[in-house]
Design a protein around this nucleic acid. Structure first.
Lengths: 194, 194
DNA sequence: GTACGTTCTTAAGATACCTTAATGCTTTCG
DNA sequence: CGAAAGCATTAAGGTATCTTAAGAACGTAC
């Protein structure tokens, strides 16, 4: 499927100028990884040696806390970048899991290759600066909402933000994302529909 | 006080190589801003046209929600970068406030000048990529803790993380940072000391 | 040095959310 | 098709945290 690479290059070009020649170099540095439903892309204890781009499907990044409770940090569909950035940057064993919710296609670049690419194509450096800044801003908004809004308000916000994903994501994962139990989310939905 | 600029350059050199010549260029792009205790560096509704580096003192970044409740997103002391990054990147009016907790010295660079600097010195681009990645990771860890820990656990973690700031920061601001009311934090501390 | 603003504490009652446990509805798959 | 697994719901009782209101301790300014 050559199309996965087209989605990747398009993703770069939304933020920085990339020549056709550079595009070919970039394509050559990413490797396709196909995942079945529920297949793990990263487990706690693994090293995270790649930056990862979702070309197709839907995945979740999560940690497991006390009593096997899942806390979902991020969902990712086509066009999103997903990783345990801390494990990637520090080269230490990951504390997180990444799992495919639906059959998915991911493009991966190894850290060593990416570090070289930063020098070969400075716009790649800039691309990841801007991408990370956007990610930081999104996380900061989530932090504010967690502190200032009720579970019901966070749920309504989730539905409007993730309209395109909502179909593919079971309710208990939405609960694990907004920070409530599945039982409580069920109660919220019941109350809302009245 | 020329020392403020030395702290800035040292901050760059912790992450990327900067020649002495480049250091002089960078120094020339930042302007010193002194703040009195409680003085506002940014208010809701303002445009945020600068990237900001704390050389001295202590500041807070916060939003004001329902019932004039403060939600603190970040504290900053010497060596930290603080901003409303969303307002800065989108050039839209800020939703946040930045205020000096103690008399402070901040170094600021205007967006237009920084964008030029990215082209003149690619290592500046790289510096902000890495800085933002670190900030993203820190925020993500905070997100996990907010979802998985009790207020008491978050308070203990705060005390160990911010040992050097704790003196300068009143308790009710720590409460506004970890996401509880001042009354409840007071109760937590009482319980802990028994 | 008195007065005012700021910060912290205390305590009672209210509420949002959790825990547990049971039930039924889907979807999956041999 | 039938069994098992996965998922959503319901309800009762429990706990963490908030709200409100009051007062104490502290610093700071005139």
């Amino acid at each position: 499927m050559a199309q996965a690479y087209d989605i990747l290059i398009e993703n770069f070009r939304q933020l920085v100028p990339i020549s056709d020649q550079e595009a070919e170099i970039i394509k050559g540095t990413f490797v396709v990884k196909k995942l079945n439903k529920k297949e793990l892309l990263l487990s706690k204890g693994d090293l995270s040696n790649h930056m990862r781009f979702v070309a197709d499907g839907c995945l979740k990044v999560y940690s497991i806390g006390e009593k096997d409770m899942e806390h979902i940090l991020q969902f990712g569909i086509s066009g999103w970048w997903i990783n345990d950035l801390y494990a990637y940057l520090t080269e230490t064993p990951s504390e997180l899991f990444i799992q495919a919710i639906t059959p998915s296609t991911v493009l991966q670049i190894h850290r060593d290759r990416l570090n070289k690419l930063y020098d070969e194509i400075p716009m790649v450096d800039r691309f990841f600066r801007i991408k990370t800044q956007h990610g930081y801003v999104a996380l900061q908004n989530r932090t504010i909402r967690t502190m200032s809004q009720t579970a019901e308000e966070r749920y309504v916000k989730f539905i409007s933000d993730y309209r395109e994903m909502e179909q593919q994501i079971p309710q208990y994962m939405i609960a694990a994302f907004i920070g409530v139990t599945p039982e409580h989310l069920s109660a919220i939905r019941k109350k809302m529909s009245l």
